[in-house]
């Protein structure tokens, strides 16, 4: 027994890790494998700052004004990152194709990508239709200055700007708006030179009407410091009952790629307890930019299952290593020269 004891250490540790992995992720895994799937939507974001206060974002209105080198101006309104047209897309006839590509980069992206896109436009120096100035006004609708613990929430389909409401009427009264205006301008070389090449010509951040200095000069989802936590809010229905929950998976500094705000996802639930639904990131079918899809897919899988996977993989490796070492004791190799 004394001879075998050292070989048992790693397998025993491995089994312990496997058990720990099962305890941590077992319920989610069971619900994912054997629960019922229902479509869900991510209509909001719960944002908690290190100081303790929270915001509940319920919708974003955007106004983008693009100016081309030949002086034409295109104005586009969007809600929740989709253009406010009947079809939800821009009409082909009125907007040049490169503007549509540019708009995709403008609505949901952070300010750095918008800067880059504008720099890319500047490379087409001979094209009079190139965009030289972008003014983007983002209005955030939601509940501001809530306590840090997520409250009970309910859905309100009647109000497109505030489709989620805290169940407590006192909290529901904290409705407010944040308005961010950023102007990126390459049209005036002299002014550009004065700004040492920075295309950001103007930036204002108004929180409930009060001028505020955010941690980063950026749009709302990208303006917070790295200590601020973003947790998606998801809504789903089971047998006519609607549920609104704050996800148990969050991310510091900005929203996760996997659970995209205002996109669809899937909730798995046990039919006996539909209120305990587990939100599972759904990257959708691979289409468009495959590599971006792959990044979203990885983020979804690993943010949900990484600890379970690490515990189980580490456990399996330890068992394997212990058994491999034991195999050398049972059947020594003929390759070893005599000591």
């Amino acid at each position: 027994m004394k001879r075998i004891a050292p070989f048992l250490v790693l397998p025993v540790l491995g089994l312990t890790l496997l058990l720990a992995g099962f305890l941590w992720g077992g319920r989610d895994l069971r619900t994912r494998l054997f629960g019922e799937a229902v479509p869900a939507r991510l209509p909001g974001m719960w944002i908690t700052r290190a100081a303790g206060s929270s915001d509940l974002l319920t919708s974003i209105s955007t106004e983008c004004r693009f100016t081309t080198a030949d002086g034409r101006i295109f104005l586009i309104h969007a809600r929740n990152h989709r253009p406010l047209t009947a079809s939800g897309t821009l009409p082909e006839a009125d907007f040049p194709p490169h503007l549509k590509t540019f708009l995709d980069k403008s609505l949901a992206a952070d300010i750095a990508l918008l800067r880059g896109a504008l720099r890319g436009e500047a490379r087409r120096a001979d094209d009079p239709a190139r965009i030289v100035r972008v003014e983007k006004i983002e209005t955030i609708h939601g509940y501001l200055g809530l306590p840090s613990a997520p409250p009970l929430l309910r859905a309100d389909a009647a109000d497109p700007l505030f489709p989620i409401v805290p169940a407590d009427p006192a909290l529901a009264a904290t409705r407010g708006e944040i308005r961010i205006r950023a102007v990126l301008d390459l049209s005036d070389p002299a002014a550009l030179a004065e700004r040492r090449g920075d295309s950001l010509a103007a930036y204002d951040y108004l929180r409930a009407g009060v001028a505020t200095e955010p941690a980063k000069k950026n749009f709302y989802l990208y303006a917070e410091p790295s200590s601020t936590e973003f947790r998606p809010v998801y809504a789903y229905e089971v047998d006519g009952r609607s549920f609104v929950r704050v996800s148990h998976i969050g991310r510091l500094g900005g929203p996760t790629l996997a659970l995209r705000l205002f996109h669809d996802s899937t909730v798995y639930h046990d039919s006996a307890a539909p209120e305990l639904g587990v939100l599972i990131a759904d990257a959708g079918r691979p289409e468009g930019q495959y590599l971006a899809w792959f990044s979203r897919f990885c983020e979804g899988v690993f943010s949900q299952w990484s600890l379970t996977a690490i515990l189980m993989c580490a456990g399996a490796v330890m068992i394997f290593v212990g058994l491999l070492a034991f195999s050398l004791e049972v059947k020594p190799s003929r390759h070893l020269d005599p000591a």
């Binding site: 936590e229 148990h248 969050g250 991310r251 510091l252 500094g253 900005g254 990484s306 600890l307 690490i310």
Partner: peptide, 28 residues
């Protein structure tokens, strides 16, 4: 690259317990 590095900013809330990705990485 794929599993751990991306977890640095993750926060998982489970049964009253909060796991930060940063701790997960270092304690791993």
């Amino acid at each position: 690259v794929v599993v751990l590095a991306g977890r640095f900013d993750d926060v998982v809330h489970f049964a009253g317990f909060t796991l930060h990705g940063e701790r997960l990485i270092y304690w791993f």
